[in-house]
């Protein structure tokens, strides 16, 4: 849809005034990581960090009252929401590609297999999708500030679950299986990410429409 690309473009312009600040912060943090960690850890850090940064567009939207603008423009609600998802994912893709590219240049890296890289990227995508997928419906329904508060709930739930002693064994078993079946695990995680994002998008649309 034309609407989706228009919305992505609009979101880009929305974040554009802050581009320099953001760019600098990201670069600084990433440079710091690049020095120290393995590719896997790097990509995983990228995931949660970009999840934080890319949803900032909701903050600007709330601060400047842009929902009214979206209401006036010839822009279908579906296109608006889908466009926002595309924008957020695009930021992750761009940032991760840059980081990946840089890490290949920086010397002193431990060698990694193709399979290992694929696994790491999928894991990264999954983490990003899980965080963003859980948060965005809250942002659409409640706005950024309120949404951020309530969006914490899924995380603490998951972290809480992961910390339960009885489940730790299961988690570790999962890890070892993944490492032994890298391609399979990678594909599964990739598919799961897409599923989460799609579900999240549908839920966001439903919640947003119900508000009217």
């Amino acid at each position: 849809m034309m609407g989706v690309s228009n919305m992505v473009r609009l979101d880009y312009f929305t974040m554009k005034p802050n581009l320099k600040t953001f760019g600098a912060v990201i670069l600084f943090v990433v440079a710091f990581w690049l020095m120290r960690t393995s590719l896997t850890l790097l990509l995983i850090n990228c995931a949660w960090y970009m999840a934080l940064i890319s949803t900032n567009v909701f903050a600007v939207e709330e601060k400047d009252g842009l929902r009214r603008l979206y209401g006036i423009l010839p822009l279908r609600t579906r296109a608006m929401i889908l466009g926002r998802y595309v924008f957020v994912i695009l930021i992750y893709v761009v940032a991760t590609s840059v980081v990946l590219g840089l890490s290949l240049i920086v010397p002193g890296r431990e060698p990694i297999t193709l399979g290992g890289a694929f696994l790491s990227m999928s894991a990264s995508l999954l983490i990003f999708s899980a965080i963003v997928g859980a948060q965005m419906p809250f942002f659409f329904r409640l706005g950024y500030n309120k949404g951020r508060f309530y969006a914490m709930i899924p995380f603490f739930t998951v972290m809480g679950l992961a910390a339960i002693p009885s489940l730790i064994g299961e988690t570790l078993a999962l890890f070892s299986w993944a490492i032994n079946n890298q391609t399979m695990a990678g594909l599964l995680m990739f598919a799961l990410s897409i599923a989460i994002l799609t579900l999240s998008c549908v839920v966001s649309l439903f919640l947003y429409e119900a508000q009217r």
């Binding site: 312009f13 929305t14 554009k16 005034p17 802050n18 600007v60 601060k63 400047d64 009252g65 842009l66 009214r68 603008l69 006036i72």
Partner: peptide, 13 residues
């Protein structure tokens, strides 16, 4: 009654 554009925009933006 109040601005519905991004604060940091210019007229061109």
């Amino acid at each position: 009654d109040s601005l519905m554009f991004v604060d940091g925009w210019t007229v061109d933006d």
